[in-house]
Computed example of a mutant assay.
Amino acid sequence: MFDMDQKIDFQAQENATKMIGYVKKAAEITHTVIMADQKASKAVSAIQTQDKSRKWTVLQEYLKEYGAFINNTTLLTGVYVYQVNAEFYAEVNLQELDRQLQIMVGIVYLKEAVRAAVSETYKECLKKLLRKSGIFTEAQLNLL
């Protein structure tokens, strides 16, 4: 067996801590994109079909789930959800349904980005409070 002492240089430890933080941030960003991809996959799949009923059904599912978010972000996006009747469905064409489904894909990504930003804001607030407590080192706080 080896009988060696081990030591990590502080600068190297600080750099390693920074690197771990960057890796963690990249993983979080990647996770956000993966989650948005998964949540938007049904809309993307519906766009690829020529089945009007399927497109409509999927669009309605997304509108039910994201309608409130859409209407709360209208000032930013210019997108608004409102009720339509059976005559609208009868007249709407595949291209219009595809356009609305594509907008939904964008909305899904927007909501995931907002969720991630809110989470990041929460983490930064938590780190600030913990930093003020004086209990944790900066290296420890960087791991959050």
Score class of each variant (00 low, 15 high):
M104G: 05
N72V: 10
Y80L: 13
E96V: 10
A86T: 12
S119N: 08
F88K: 03
C125E: 13
I107Q: 00
E120T: 06
Q60V: 08
G78V: 12
D98H: 00
K42H: 04
L94H: 05
I70H: 04
A117M: 09
N72K: 12
K127T: 10
D98T: 07
V105D: 09
K127H: 04
S45G: 13
E91T: 14
L129H: 05
V105C: 09
V79D: 08
F88G: 04
K127M: 09
F69V: 10
L76F: 06
G106W: 02
S119W: 12
A40Q: 00
L126G: 01
A46G: 03
L76T: 03
V114S: 08
K52S: 05
E61W: 09
L63Y: 06
R131A: 14
E120K: 06
N72H: 08
Q50L: 07
A90E: 15
K111V: 15
Q48H: 03
F88V: 13
R131G: 07
S119F: 13
A117C: 04
T77Y: 00
E112A: 11
V118I: 13
V108K: 03
Q100F: 02
N85K: 06
V114G: 05
Q38A: 12
F69H: 00
Y62H: 11
Y109W: 06
Q38L: 14
A68F: 15
W56G: 05
E120G: 00
N71P: 15
Y122A: 14
V44A: 06
V58G: 01
D98Q: 06
I103M: 08
V79R: 07
G106Q: 11
T73M: 14
E61Q: 11
Y109C: 03
I103K: 02
E91M: 14
N71Y: 11
Q100L: 09
E91N: 12
T49R: 01
Y122E: 15
L110K: 03
L59E: 07
A116I: 06
V81R: 03
G106C: 03
G67F: 01
Q102M: 10
E96C: 02
F88A: 07
Q102E: 11
L63N: 11
A113M: 09
V81Q: 11
G67A: 11
I135K: 04
I70Q: 01
W56K: 07
I47V: 12
F69S: 11
K123E: 15
K39C: 05
E124R: 00
K123A: 14
L129C: 08
E65G: 03
F69C: 06
G67T: 08
S45M: 12
Q100S: 09
K128Y: 01
S53W: 02
L59G: 02
L130M: 10
G78E: 02
Y62L: 08
T121G: 07
M104L: 14
K127I: 13
L97Q: 11
D98A: 02
L110S: 01
E87D: 14
I70G: 07
W56E: 13
E124W: 00
L76N: 13
K55Y: 07
L110N: 04
I107G: 01
E120L: 10
L126W: 05
K52E: 08
L97I: 09
E96S: 10
V114N: 07
L75S: 12
F88S: 01
